[in-house]
């Protein structure tokens, strides 16, 4: 039960959505783009969001693409995490996105929605951060295409009215070897997708022709990929133990300390994970 009213719009084109947004904004209706809506609904129920208008983007054709085009994987922002997962076009994204919430909710959560989530874990973005993803955005001035890292620091840096249309990833990234993991406060993960709950640590390691790329969620207050950290991981002159020590030094923010876990334990899990990942890549043909 959402204890207030809002207007609901379902445009059929990106231009229509953007112009609706600006129009509603000028009327002070605090409009929000609505993908799966899971967060707008649950946060509104608890008085943590107050949109007076929502713009459902699921009717926009560009937002519903999921295919390879000219050696690029194109994923519409309104594609659900389940659809991405079932398509199996990008196994690393399957695993990261496949750990968000639970399976049934992933039938509703969209890729765009997860990446713009207010809940800080946004695990689907990990796969995109390590794969040179580009983002296609529509706004008043038309369409722009930008590298993900240029508009993501601690969260997505979007202008009012920016509508995420698509994410594109070069095909070669979708077939690289990788390692990914998630741990929650409750403990072990038996199956790759097991365990419902916010991550103490969720991590991906992509082996880009011998060079490890890595991104993490749950460790710091926001998901991140750190080039500095990757430099340490890829430094062949440093012993594994030193790598762990140095890695902890190059985190972009203090380690999260919350009711799920202390910062000390997160660091312990992080070190174990790195050690495991390094072992995992040992002996892999780079």
């Amino acid at each position: 039960m959402i204890p207030f009213d809002f207007e609901y719009y379902k445009p059929t084109s990106a231009q229509e959505a953007v112009s609706l947004f600006h129009n509603l904004r000028s009327q002070e209706k605090n409009p929000m783009y609505y993908g799966g809506g899971t967060e707008i609904i649950s946060f509104s129920r608890l008085y943590q969001l107050f949109p007076k208008a929502v713009i459902d983007v699921k009717g926009i054709p560009e937002c519903n693409v999921l295919e390879f085009k000219n050696d690029k994987l194109v994923i519409g922002a309104a594609k659900t995490l389940s659809q991405v997962q079932e398509s199996n076009l990008f196994p690393l994204l399957n695993q990261c996105g496949g750990r968000v919430a639970d399976h049934t909710i992933r039938d509703k959560i969209t890729l765009g929605g997860n990446i713009c989530s207010r809940i800080p874990f946004r695990e689907a973005i990990l796969a995109l951060l390590v794969s040179d993803c580009e983002v296609i955005i529509e706004n008043k001035n038309g369409i722009r295409k930008v590298p993900l890292e240029s508009i993501y620091t601690e969260s997505m840096l979007l202008e009012p009215g920016d509508l995420l249309l698509q994410f594109t990833v070069e095909k070669n990234y979708t077939v690289m070897p990788f390692f990914s993991m998630k741990k929650t406060a409750d403990g072990d993960v038996d199956y790759p997708q097991d365990r419902i709950g916010y991550p103490l640590l969720s991590g991906v390691f992509l082996n880009n022709k011998g060079h490890i790329r890595a991104a993490f969620s749950g460790l710091c207050p926001y998901p991140f990929r750190s080039l500095k950290l990757e430099a340490v991981l890829n430094d062949t002159t440093v012993s594994p133990d030193e790598k762990l020590n140095e890695s902890v030094q190059c985190l972009p923010a203090p380690i999260l300390n919350d009711m799920d876990s202390s910062a000390q334990y997160r660091e312990f899990v992080f070190r174990n994970t790195l050690a495991g990942a390094l072992d995992n890549f040992e002996g892999v043909e780079f």
Binding site: A185, D186, D190, Y191, D194, I196, G197, Y198
Partner: peptide, 16 residues
Amino acid sequence: RMNPQFRTYHLMRYGE
């Protein structure tokens, strides 16, 4: 109370 929801108050789930 910091965990007043199933999201934060975890019960055993299927298969666990």
